[in-house]
């Protein structure tokens, strides 16, 4: 872990030799110069860890790590060819922006600006889908760890995707619907109608969802099945393995709770 950085003195010596070979090579570019090629290769190998270090940090943006290492290495080569020992800066300082620049350009060429939110939204959707699926499998709400394992993502990624998925959704009112840069496309906000009665419904729903928090797990299940899925009390009783009378009592109690919360 600590060997990311090649020895400073060694690197300087290598560059000094490379500078000589480079001058020779530039004097007569037609002639094959094994020294020049070898030193250049050696410098690349010595700094591959830097490329890797940087590429890994951009790997969560939706492109394969191998590709990033590859374009990062192109950046490294550019930096090696342009580096001048006399400038007195460490090569790592000089090369990092070049490598990162190359990686970022790659993302930009790939339409990256569209990709990031999409990736997050995809992960966000995947989290929602998978948590439903896992809930059925486990008979309870899954933990973040379980979701992360199933989706092959980090726990922090799951949490972030959930949060940011929402943030981006809220933001997207101002966003353009088509991703084409040269055309002014319609924004999402322009497509939203006004005074939609459905909005009030949405608000009611939000209130109800909040009110739901006062219910116990079983009460919530009953209300959900009864009023959202229109399942009969008898059927619910069968599913919960209790009597229909009991379901009826629990439902009455749950409705009373909801009523008192919503009236507030």
């Amino acid at each position: 872990m600590n060997d990311f950085r090649p020895d400073r003195e060694q690197t300087r010596a290598l560059f000094a030799r490379f500078a000589l070979a480079r001058t020779r090579h530039e004097g007569d570019p037609e002639r094959a110069d094994p020294d020049y090629e070898r030193l250049r290769d050696e410098l690349v190998v010595v700094h591959l860890n830097l490329v890797r270090f940087l590429a890994v940090r951009f790997a969560n943006r939706g492109e394969p790590l191998d590709d990033l290492i590859q374009v990062g290495t192109v950046g490294l080569l550019k930096a090696i060819d342009r580096f001048d020992l006399d400038r007195g800066v460490e090569f790592t300082t000089y090369a990092t922006p070049t490598i990162v620049g190359e990686i970022k350009r790659y993302f930009r060429d790939k339409g990256w600006a569209v990709k990031v939110p999409r990736r997050l939204q995809e992960l966000n959707l995947a989290v929602n889908r998978t948590s439903d699926k896992l809930a059925i499998e486990l008979g309870r709400s899954p933990t973040v760890g379980e979701l992360a394992k199933r989706l092959d993502a980090g726990e922090d990624e799951i949490l972030e995707a959930q949060e940011l998925g929402q943030a981006y959704n809220l933001l997207s009112l101002d966003s353009e619907l088509s991703g084409e840069a040269d055309k002014k496309s319609q924004t999402l906000a322009e497509t939203v109608g006004i005074a939609d009665a459905g909005l009030e419904l949405l608000e009611d729903r939000a209130n109800i969802e909040r009110a739901f928090e006062v219910l116990s797990g079983r009460e919530r299940v009953i209300i959900y099945l009864r009023f959202y899925e229109a399942v009969s009390q008898t059927e619910i009783a069968k599913r919960l393995n209790v009597s229909q009378m009991h379901v009826s009592r629990l439902q009455a109690k749950a409705l009373e709770k909801l009523r008192s919360v919503l009236v507030e």
Binding site: F4, L50, F53, L54, T92, T93, T96, P97, V100
Partner: peptide
Amino acid sequence: GLGVFLIRTL
């Protein structure tokens, strides 16, 4: 150290 190089770039 390397992280700092990256931070400077960003």
